[in-house]
Amino acid sequence: MIKALPGIGEGICVIEPRLERLTAANATGFRDELLALLEKGEDRLLVDMSGVEFVDSSGIGAMVGVLKRIGNRGEIAICGLSGSVQKMFGITRMDRVFAVYRDRDTAIAAMNERA
């Protein structure tokens, strides 16, 4: 469901969801795969949503669940939002809850600066 690219920059793990739609049908599995990465010690996650065309409230909930699990011991950032996914992040204020970047390079540069 995801492709994980660890060891980017300053300990960043880039996540590429292998999903066009992150919804109630797959949100739990998506969340669990991210939580498994946390258990392996990957606690600086960048989720690149550029391949995701639609997210529902279950998908948002999955992201929030991961954010809550990370707490203060790491971070989860988002990049590549567009169309209805960007709209959903705005309506639900997730664009203020998560660090959101235009694209992967911008996000990695910002996360490296924070390291």
Binding site: S57, G61, V64, G65, K68, T92, V97
Partner: peptide, 9 residues
């Protein structure tokens, strides 16, 4: 809504 709630949206 509480932005940190995981469901109920």
């Amino acid at each position: 809504l509480d932005p940190m709630q995981v469901d109920g949206r």
